[in-house]
Amino acid sequence: MRVLVVEDDRELGPAITAGLRTGGLAVDYASSLAEADLKVSVNRYDCVVADRGLPDGDALGLIGAWRRAGRTVPVLVLTALGAVEDRVAGFEHGADDYLVKPFALAELLARVRALGRREQHPRLPELTVGDLTLDVPSRRTRRGGVLLSFTAKEFAVLEALMLRAGAAVTRGELLERCWDEMADPASNVVDVVIANLRRKLGPPDLIESLRGVGYRIREPA
């Protein structure tokens, strides 16, 4: 799951970014509306977390512009403006959620994940391929009824593959969905995670390598 944080506070912005990354999300960072607009135009995000008071204006104006342009990326407004009229204005401009500062990081992470699930697979809280089951809300994975343990990145890659079960998923698509903009597209980070997934999932192998393309998860023959 890939998230964009839009916050100009030099301490709070990096702290939110680090906190969400610790929670297993791929997070990009922008400190102005112009930078956020550019990043949303070139990257696919599952959720945007935006402060309202940015150096170049109120984020509600940008959210409204996105909605008028047909951009449906979920947006959570994170702001100190907590009056009823402020929250109402947020929803009227197209925000999907509104959280008032100060806030608990655990609550922010839960809200962001909920918005991301709504965008990715609103009717599929549980994904299944063969004897492998991935419970998205609880972030638990079982194969043959046995509970498996994965890192946050491994879980994200496995989820991306299972959402497209039977179809090819390129390395570029996995990088875009599961890593942030700091990832080096020439590195072997995807291959390393896939190797770890295969080892932990055990036989028979569910993940098929597609030479020159990427990977596909499928039910064993």
Rank of each mutant, 00 (worst) to 15 (best):
E126D: 05
E126W: 00
E126N: 04
E126S: 13
E126L: 11
L127E: 08
L127P: 09
L127H: 06
L127W: 04
T128K: 11
V129D: 00
G130H: 02
L132Q: 03
L132D: 00
L132T: 00
D135C: 12
D135S: 14
V136M: 05
V136L: 14
S138T: 14
S138H: 12
R139N: 09
R139H: 13
R139I: 09
R140C: 05
R140H: 12
T141S: 13
R142M: 04
G144M: 02
G144K: 01
G144D: 03
G145N: 02
L147C: 00
L148M: 03
S149R: 12
S149H: 12
S149A: 15
T151V: 05
T151H: 09
T151K: 06
A152G: 12
A152W: 01
A152F: 03
A152L: 04
A152V: 02
K153C: 11
K153R: 15
K153P: 10
E154Q: 15
F155W: 14
F155L: 15
F155Y: 15
F155G: 08
F155C: 05
F155S: 06
A156F: 06
V157K: 03
V157N: 08
L158Q: 09
L158G: 10
E159F: 03
E159D: 14
L161Q: 10
L161G: 11
M162P: 11
M162N: 12
L163G: 15
L163C: 08
L163P: 03
L163T: 05
L163W: 02
R164I: 03
R164H: 13
A165V: 08
G166W: 06
G166H: 09
G166D: 11
G166M: 06
A167K: 14
A168V: 10
A168R: 07
A168C: 05
A168W: 01
T170P: 05
R171M: 08
G172E: 14
G172D: 15
G172C: 02
